[in-house]
């Protein structure tokens, strides 16, 4: 899934809010905590973040409100200018881009979906979706055609003449999604796209989103404050607190090995068997020979529950998607995870 050169590469990024942030940052001693900085009259929106996002990867940034997750994603798209560090998109330092280059980058590579949709109230669905194309100066016939394609993709055809206030919340967000996809971006930012929706619709939209992602395979940075949502969608999760990243790892690893007490608090109530995959519990073979049919490493422990109970073997071989056996999983460890330690 991941290739070698990251699409987004973020090194020691800082974003400070306050009267004179650059000067403050340059004179700041190392190891200042969030509260130390606050005491000096500055707010650390992003605090020394280093992070790579690979091509086709879905990174979910998780944190409570005020943790800096929205600020971070706005630094990636340079809606905010960072105070220190570097952010590169496809190897290009975005802070070095002139205004024109930045506009070009956004017109060709980036799409973004917003929590409260950010639709233009005076434009119809079609006009909203076609807006980025209009900014690029595409002619109206082509832009209509392309916009209609995307509108169909998100299941809104027939509604293209409606105005945002004539649509339900879920439908409005579909418009937001269609707009962000209309230019066929490589990178797709989603800032809590489903938080403003009620729970039933949210579930439906998540499914819809997974369907789209399967079809399109974009590089995605997805923001949420909902840990379950993060687990459900992510390839990797970055958990943020006070502007800094507490832990960035796969959902399995976060659930199995929370690195800080803060992360632990989130994982405590999670039904782990629903999250952890067999591959995450597998230990390397170390030359040992294993026998019998391997189990699919891509399945969760919960999905394997019946096998685990019925299969008498002590250790179960685990295979990857191509069928090659890559490791071995202890049945007891898996059963403990499923039912709690005996």
């Amino acid at each position: 899934m991941q290739t070698d050169t990251p699409v987004i590469s973020c090194r020691n990024a800082w974003k400070l809010f306050g009267p004179n942030p650059r000067q403050y940052l340059s004179q700041m001693p190392d190891g200042q905590s969030y509260n130390d900085i606050l005491a000096d009259g500055y707010i650390a929106g992003v605090k020394d973040v280093s992070l790579d996002v690979g091509k086709g990867e879905m990174l979910v940034i998780m944190g409570l409100s005020g943790s800096g997750k929205s600020t971070l994603v706005r630094c990636f798209s340079r809606l905010h200018d960072i105070t220190g560090g570097t952010i590169e998109i496809d190897g290009q330092d975005i802070m070095a881009l002139p205004e024109k280059g930045l506009i070009e980058l956004r017109r060709s590579k980036m799409g973004m979906v917003f929590q409260s949709f950010g639709l233009l109230p005076h434009r119809t669905v079609l006009e909203n979706v076609a807006f980025p194309l209009e900014m690029r100066g595409q002619d109206s016939h082509k832009r209509r055609e392309r916009a209609m394609e995307v509108i169909k993709l998100v299941g809104l055809d027939g509604r293209e003449g409606y105005f945002p206030r004539e649509l339900s919340g879920g439908q409005q967000q579909r418009v937001g999604i269609a707009r962000s996809l209309v230019i066929e971006p490589d990178i797709w930012f989603l800032d809590e796209p489903f938080s403003a929706l009620d729970p039933l619709i949210r579930r439906e939209m998540q499914d819809e989103f997974l369907r789209l992602q399967e079809m399109l395979g974009k590089t995605i940075v997805f923001i949420t404050h909902d840990f379950d949502e993060a687990l459900r969608l992510a390839d990797r999760i970055a958990i943020m607190k006070d502007g800094a990243i507490e832990q960035c790892d796969t959902p399995d690893q976060i659930v199995l090995n929370p690195k800080t007490p803060y992360v632990l608090k989130f994982t405590e109530d999670v039904e782990k068997a629903l999250v952890v995959h067999a591959s995450a519990l597998a230990k390397p073979l170390n030359g040992e020979a294993v026998e019998g049919t391997p189990i699919d490493g891509g399945m969760t422990i919960r999905q394997l529950a019946r096998t685990l109970v019925n299969d008498p073997r002590e250790n179960l071989p685990v295979a990857d998607s191509s069928g090659t056996v890559t490791g071995v999983m202890s049945r007891k460890a898996a059963l403990d995870l499923l039912m709690g330690p005996a």
């Binding site: 506009i103 956004r106 233009l120």
Partner: peptide
């Protein structure tokens, strides 16, 4: 932000 991300001048 939606406008900016759409690449508006």
């Amino acid at each position: 932000e939606a406008g900016k991300m759409s690449g508006a001048t």
